[in-house]
Design a protein around this nucleic acid. Structure first.
Lengths: 195, 195
DNA sequence: AGGCTATCTGAACGCGCGTTCAATATCAAA
DNA sequence: TTTGATATTGAACGCGCGTTCAGATAGCCT
């Protein structure tokens, strides 16, 4: 036995990442073995090393991809004129983008500590870039006089924490639709910034 | 060599919990070995088993103690009359209580998945009890007509996520005092609930 | 049909894991 | 000073870990 029938790197590669993401999110990076990931894919442990140099690189790849997608998606979001419209765009985008990506969101701030120093710095920088997107909107709103915030940096952190928190309780098929959740959160954020 | 000079269970027990808390928070439960904890305490691994039946029980003890303390401390907080004053008490209490307990707060919602089913249910119930404390205040405020919330359950989750988020960026000796942070967050929460 | 390359197996490496336990040194009380 | 209770060591248990690699099969191009 060696190569399996129907095997292709374009199939196995993504499946490894998908199963790793699922297992890391469920049990934690350190608690999941390469053999478990391999078994979930239906392959022997050694085969994983055709797709990743080591276990940490597998995690890093998941986090990096997630952050890149997040920033790219936000860059492509149309936003109305003015800080208030921009803030609404941000709030709705954050919820809409992250809700269907619960695993990756979870990993991206729970498993950072399992990265080596260099890899950690890369993800941290991307995260900070995203936070800065929001803070820029808040600052613009202060300048426009539509927001009344004692501290834009804290407000940015507070809003992101609040929005990301949705992932901790949201379950598919619950009593509220995604659209409804977006609107409720936007209502609270709008009032919180004093607009 | 056997018993060490100056050894006492009243000393070693708390030290084991303290070092375990520190290491679990820093590296994650699964990534920390009993030998690492023992080394941090200055003892051999076998000695830990005089203080805990197994590794999971050590984690459970930390989480349970943290939640019990949280609920007991909140129960002892004096609150002014009316929902608005109660909400301010809650917001300030949450920040004040949790800021100096960053490790335990972190553990209490990052390492829940490492508990067995029964232990998980215990912690989950305590957490829910705490959330209900806040939601009760919000509901009272709705009844009094001082709050204008589309959904008290979501608002409770949003507020707690926002407040707990402080722990992710707060560092001792930063540019803001604890009192200042309390006030800034209370300002945002007060506006968000529409009061 | 033949040969090259891509893909995977299965065994092996040394190592550290959680946990147990007999042996032993210290402490506290009598 | 003896004695029993308390606190700890250090070795051992079987096991699974991340990773490597020679060998073998499947797919693809000519």
């Amino acid at each position: 036995m060696a190569r399996k029938t129907g095997s292709h790197s374009e199939i196995t590669g993504p499946r490894i990442r998908a199963e790793a993401s699922r297992l890391f999110a469920r049990h934690g990076f350190a608690a999941v073995s390469m053999r478990q990931i391999a078994a979930a894919v239906g392959v022997q442990a050694g085969a994983l090393y055709l797709y990743t140099p080591d276990k940490e690189a597998l995690l890093f790849d998941l986090l990096k991809t997630h952050m890149d997608e997040l920033l790219a998606a936000w860059a492509g979001v149309p936003r109305g004129p003015g800080a208030l419209a921009a803030l609404e765009s941000f709030v709705r985008f954050h919820i809409r983008h992250n809700l269907p990506r619960a695993e990756a969101v979870f990993l991206s701030y729970m498993e950072l500590r399992n990265l080596s120093e260099g890899n950690f710095a890369v993800i941290e920088a991307l995260r900070r870039a995203y936070e800065t997107e929001l803070e820029t909107i808040l600052r613009a709103g202060q300048a426009e006089g539509v927001f009344a915030l004692p501290d834009t940096k804290l407000a940015a952190m507070a809003i992101i924490a609040m929005l990301t928190g949705v992932n901790t309780w949201y379950r598919e098929g619950g009593r509220l639709s995604r659209e409804g959740i977006e609107t409720i959160y936007w209502d609270m954020v709008r009032k919180a910034v004093g607009a």
